[in-house]
Amino acid sequence: MGSAMKLDSDTNYIVSGLERSGTSMMMQILHAGSIPTTFDSSRKSDQNNPKGYYELEGGKIISKLMKGSFPFEKYKGSFIKVTAYGLKYLPKGWYKIIYSERNIEEILDSMEKMADIKDEERDKTKKTFVKLNKMIKETITEREDIDVLFINYNEMLSDPKTQIKKIPEFLETSGVNLDSMIRAIDKKLYRQRKI
């Protein structure tokens, strides 16, 4: 999946966040802005992500991360999607991470819809994912080999220009098509709105 712009070939670039926090939309935005992104078509687009998942290996790279067998070297210089839990297993390296955050109730609604379940322990699940988010954010903020930009999904939809402008600043690059990135945001897909 080539793009015109070049990123640092010694850095691993990651889009992350809790599952259903807007990570696929962030990958779409980057891709639309000609920022290098790598994904495959293992998981086809569906009603939960009509524009695609923008993932590697159908999103199942977490198992490889846990085993320490994910080939980060191969993906230097291009954004890949690794959801929050996978960041717990990042080996030492040099990373730039865009971490998406979203209202937790919307995340839980979207998870239930995608997994086609009615969570009978929703409060417990909420607590768990709030803790996971907090733990991962602390880890990636504290690690010296990780540079992170936090983007709020809800703010991205309400004020895309302000939020998207943060991305080229974070990447220290100017060759980005901001208009295309803004156009990639499809507010029609914001179906679990709570705030």
């Binding site: 599952e19 999103g59 199942k60 839990y85 998870m111 699940t125 607590k127 768990t128």
Partner: peptide
């Protein structure tokens, strides 16, 4: 984040196909 939380996250990730 406890062992129990860890298992709950893994269960949910399995349900979501991750």
């Amino acid at each position: 984040f406890s062992k129990e939380d860890e298992e709950k996250v893994k269960d949910r990730l399995r349900a979501l196909g991750y």
